[in-house]
Amino acid sequence: MPVISVEKDLDLLTITIVAEFAAPLRRLWDAYTDPRQIERFWGPPTYPATFLRHDAITGGRSVYKMTGREGDEHYGCWEWTSVQAPDAFEVVDSFADATGKPNTTLPTMRTAFAFEPIDAGSRLVTTSRFDSLEQLEQLLEMGMLEGTREAMSQIDTVLADLAAFAADRAVEAQVLSETQVRVARVIRGSLEQVWRAHNDADLLKKWLLGPDGWTMPVCEIAAKAGDSYRYEWENEVGGDRFGFTGELLESEEPSRSVTTEAMIGMDFPATLNELTLTPVEGGTLLSLVITYANAEQRDAVLATGMTGGMETSYARLEGILESAVA
């Protein structure tokens, strides 16, 4: 059992949990900051979690849902108030509604996560602070400690599963809900390199091409929120052409951007694309959450082999980044 101690301080209104793991500190840090990993242990086995957003940066947000065996869903959110990778981060942890908006009628915790190396691996100390004794007691009555113990008991399995999150794995798509899909891949390159590769027209024209035989004659970048962008591709042999356009809604260099995306000349509803870049061991984790109008549109896009084209592009990007370093 990873949890080695639990201390309740009713005077300071805190609960401190200490857990130890037979894994290096960086491996443990990545498990908490990678949405693919944390959702495998954040909820207890009876209420597994799905992270719909996860920004491991100061000022970022996370939104997650926990789903019971009867299909009941319970939402929560984090406001990231401080991040000092890979040693510590602090969040305001609240219950939420399905949109991710905090539920102010239920208790809110301010939780600090402190990571440190030890001889046997790494230690995690989480300290949760409450606004009142009533809030602390309410969460204890709701089973907070039991749920935390059950959740943390799953971390060892995630930490041991290195292959599932290795930098040499191809693009993977995970269905999050009826309308959402998360596409993820670790790209061998720094956070700054991967961000620039998505925001420099000259670079985009070199790697964002999908299968061989395509060029990108139109690459108009959105420089700031409110700007529109336009990308068009052309087949070198047949001359076939297609493209996408949309608006940049949010931009937080070098970690997050949010855009709309619509196929030029088609009547399909625009998607909402939320891109998050997170430094991890071996490179930068690219996480793209795509929200479709409905399940039919989601399934139709996935059936086109979208991830195959994306993998070809990201592999090409890695080659460009490696050449730049050599």
Rank of each mutant, 00 (worst) to 15 (best):
L159C: 13
E20M: 11
I118G: 04
G305A: 14
D227H: 10
Q135Y: 13
P217D: 09
L248K: 04
R169T: 15
G76W: 03
A166V: 12
E20R: 09
K224H: 05
D156E: 15
P107L: 08
L106D: 06
L248C: 09
E232I: 10
H198N: 10
V218S: 02
D30C: 08
P107R: 00
M152A: 12
F95V: 06
I264L: 15
E220T: 09
A112C: 07
F268C: 10
V301H: 09
D161T: 13
Y314K: 00
Y64T: 08
T127G: 08
D11E: 15
L288N: 07
R61D: 03
F89Y: 05
T271H: 01
F41D: 03
G265E: 12
L272C: 07
K65Y: 11
F130H: 15
R36H: 04
V258S: 10
Q180V: 03
F268Y: 06
E274K: 06
I17V: 15
L204H: 01
T284V: 08
P102I: 09
V3D: 06
I57Y: 01
D9N: 02
V325P: 02
T179M: 06
S228C: 08
H54T: 00
T127P: 05
Y32A: 03
V181H: 04
T307N: 13
G243K: 06
E20W: 04
V3C: 12
E232W: 01
K8C: 04
R196N: 07
H198V: 00
S190D: 00
E141V: 07
N235R: 11
R256P: 04
E296Y: 11
E261I: 06
L176G: 07
S122C: 06
L106S: 13
V158L: 05
F95E: 06
K206N: 02
L285G: 01
W78H: 15
P117C: 05
T291P: 09
E39H: 06
F89K: 00
D227F: 10
Q193P: 02
F115W: 01
A114S: 13
I15S: 00
G210A: 07
N103V: 08
T260I: 10
A164Y: 11
E322T: 10
V92W: 07
Y47H: 13
F89E: 02
I155M: 13
A167P: 11
A120K: 11
L286W: 00
T111E: 12
A225H: 06
D11Q: 07
E247M: 12
P269W: 07
R316H: 08
R298L: 04
D267A: 14
E90C: 05
